[in-house]
Design a protein around this nucleic acid. Sequence first.
DNA 1: GACTATCCGGGATGGCTGTCCCGGTTGTCA
DNA 2: TGACAACCGGGACAGCCATCCCGGATAGTC
Lengths: 184, 184
Amino acid sequence: MRADAERNRARILDTAIAAFAAEGLGVSVHEIARRAGVGTGTVSRHFPTKDALFEAIVADRVGRIVDRVQALAESPDQREAFVEFLTILTEEGAANVGIAQAFAGAGYDMDAAATAGGYDFDAAMAAALCRAQEAHVVRADADVADIKALMVSCMSRGSADQATRARMIDIVARGLRPPESATQ
Amino acid sequence: MRADAERNRARILDTAIAAFAAEGLGVSVHEIARRAGVGTGTVSRHFPTKDALFEAIVADRVGRIVDRVQALAESPDQREAFVEFLTILTEEGAANVGIAQAFAGAGYDMDAAATAGGYDFDAAMAAALCRAQEAHVVRADADVADIKALMVSCMSRGSADQATRARMIDIVARGLRPPESATQ
DNA sequence: GACTATCCGGGATGGCTGTCCCGGTTGTCA
DNA sequence: TGACAACCGGGACAGCCATCCCGGATAGTC
């Protein structure tokens, strides 16, 4: 691979990451090319389709999330770990409009992109939920789809301040507690 | 207004209501015209823009929601009334993909459409929340944007069964309880 | 039954999108 | 330094979309 090709590829990727994070997945390929200072052909040569570009970005990003979520398995306090799990997802989505959109199912298939990158996002979610349920920190009738849906709500407050998102997480975490656990 | 014009207008409106409810706001004006059995020109004459068509539909739909929500003010049990409030919104969104999308902010501005129809949706939401907070049924730090965001989560489970949506409402309602109220 | 204002159909237009292709350029290596 | 393969730019293309327009049809009225 020629040096200039490598350079352009990196510039396109950086530009796309910034654009998707700030404005969401609606940014056109033409616009990304313009901002990166390259032609549209250059973009589509490195990334044949927009999905491929999205995938290259998401694979990396989701990978980091999966790693952090899996690390929580070692935590001694599973209640705290579960709140941390919600916080990781929320803050990631709040900081990245594209991730939040993909998570909400508007645009691209995030699970598929993560799988293509060698990460099983869905399994990581399921494992985190299962751990919390086994520790009786989360009600047994909740499923992964519930968590995902609720996370969309938290992420959607990305434009608000961090305290607002913390409140949203608190609401969700309290709502997910087992009904019989009436403690604070 | 000529009789055939009146007839066509009604057919377009009925078709659009069904299409938006079943498939969401992504259905094209061409497609609505085709299904209604009229030309695209006929649609755009009755409804100059797609927004106008959306507005004509939403104004009516949201009006009914606002009426039902306001009626809850008379309820003797405000805790029950608040859950009913969440249920009304959730079921409406679950039964109508277009409403759910508009509520989530993807597509059109629902508040603006409701206002154009003579209904203040935002005020109805705020009033319902305020009543619940004054009755100490909902934590004082929650705001209307919180409720809206959480409702998006509940609505998004429209394709699931009714029990799933009831569980989602339960999670949200529990999460919104005042922290000091540790009762079941 | 005829006349006119009204309304209809659907093709045309312009703007957006993602993707492809080719003439010109530039990095790389002998 | 020269030559060639790799790469670039951006115009071209096809597919969507909402919106506009005009020749033809039709409903309502005298």
